[in-house]
Computed example of a mutant assay.
Amino acid sequence: MKNKASNQPNNPLHGVKLTDILEQITQKYTWEQLADRIDINCFKSNPTIKSSLKFLRRTPWAREKVEHLYLKSIKK
């Protein structure tokens, strides 16, 4: 099997699942820190990976913000 990134070498999110993104950023930040950085209720009110995934899959603008935070966190 070819490297997943070889199809889209300029897209750092290619092949990265939203679940993996959330798991990685929740290891780096607390839910409260995430809510401070991205003002969305799924990080404020009873936050879980499952509820956040459900919201982010339906809300493109929020998903973009989470993806941006993820990209910033892996560059450091």
Rank of each mutant, 00 (worst) to 15 (best):
E32T: 14
K44H: 04
R57L: 10
C42R: 02
I25L: 13
P60D: 11
D36K: 07
I49K: 12
K44Y: 03
L56V: 05
T48I: 05
W61Q: 12
R63F: 14
L34S: 01
L22T: 04
N41L: 11
R58D: 07
Y29E: 07
I25Y: 04
E23M: 03
S52K: 02
N41R: 07
Q24F: 15
Y29T: 06
K28Q: 15
W31Q: 11
R63P: 05
R58E: 12
L56M: 08
I38H: 02
S45Q: 06
P47M: 07
W61G: 00
A35L: 14
I25N: 09
Y29F: 15
W31T: 02
K28N: 11
A35Y: 15
T59V: 13
S45R: 14
E32R: 07
Y29L: 10
L22K: 02
L34E: 00
E23S: 10
Q27D: 15
D36R: 09
Q33L: 08
S52Y: 06
S45V: 14
K50Q: 11
S45C: 03
E32H: 06
L56T: 06
A35P: 03
Q33H: 10
K54E: 12
N46P: 04
I25H: 10
R63D: 10
C42W: 00
F55C: 09
E23A: 04
K44W: 03
R58Q: 12
S45W: 11
I49W: 13
D39H: 03
E23I: 05
P47Q: 12
T59C: 11
D36H: 08
S52H: 08
R58T: 10
A62T: 11
T26R: 08
R57V: 08
Q33G: 07
K50V: 03
L34F: 01
R63S: 09
N41P: 11
R58G: 07
P60G: 01
S51H: 14
N46I: 01
T48F: 13
D36C: 02
R58I: 04
N46S: 09
R63K: 15
N46H: 13
L53W: 14
Q33S: 13
D39Q: 13
L34W: 01
